[in-house]
Amino acid sequence: MVKKIALSVKNLNLWYGSNHALIDIDMDVYEKKVTALIGPSGCGKSTLIRCFNRMNDVVDNCKVKGAINWKDKNIYGKGVDVIEVRKQIGMIFQKPNPFPKSIYDNVAYGPRLQGVRGKKKLDAIVHKSIKDAALWDEVHDRFSDSAMSLSGGQQQRLCIARTLAIEPEIILMDEPTSALDPISTSKIEDLVFELKKKYTVIIVTHNMQQAARVSDHTGFMYLGEMIEYDRTQKIFERPKKRLTEKYISGRFG
C-alpha cells in the first residue's frame, strides 16, 4: 500500500530570537495516519506542531526558514491564506479551552463564523461533530448547558468536536490528555484511533505508551533536531539510534 503524504517538512529551521529551536527538520507526515512527536521537555515538539498551522506567527522575534508543503504549496510561501491554513489544520491544546458558552454554541462557533446559517444546517453539523468526538451519549440532552459544567475529559472532547465542526483535514494535538484522568485519556485515545479514518492526526505526547498505542509513525526530537523518525513499531521495538533507545527506555541523562 502506498502511503500518501499529507504534509512534507523540508529543511525547516526556526529561531526564537537567537534561540535556534528547530534545526533542519525533514519529515513526511502521512495522510490518514497518526504521527506522534516525542522527546524531552524543551526539545521543540510544541514548536514544530505549531508550525503546521503557523501558530508561531504570533510570537515576536520568531523566524522560520524552510518549507512545509501541503497540497503542492508551501504553508510558509508567499500569498498563503493563513486563515485558510488554520481552518484546514485544526489544533487541540493540552488544557481543554472551551469558550464560556453553551455546549451547542461552542461547536457551532466555527461554522457560524464561516457563515453557516439556519438551525437545521447548524444542528446537523453540531450533532455530527459531537458524535464524531464520542461525546454524544454524555451531552445530547443538555446542549444548552454551559461547556464549563463538563468534566475535563468531556471538555477536551468538546474541543475536538469544535475542531471537527470546521471540517479540517489535519488535526494537531499538543499533549491532549496530560491534564486528564486515565478513563478520559483512554476515551481520547480511542477517539484518535477513530479520527484517523477521516483525518490526519499529529499528536505530541510525553506518554511513551500512548505514542506506542495510538500512532503509526513516531518522531523522536532532541534539542531541536529530529533524531529518528520511523514506523512506531520500529521505534519502540528496535530503534536505530542509541539516543532514541535511551530516551524511550527511560535512561536519559
Binding site: M208, Q209, A212, F236, E237, R238, P239, E245, I248, S249, G250
Partner: peptide, 10 residues
C-alpha cells in the same frame, strides 16, 4: 509495572 520498550522489552 514499567512497560519497558526496545531492548528492555525484547
Amino acid at each position: 509495572l514499567y512497560q519497558p520498550v526496545a531492548t528492555d522489552m525484547r
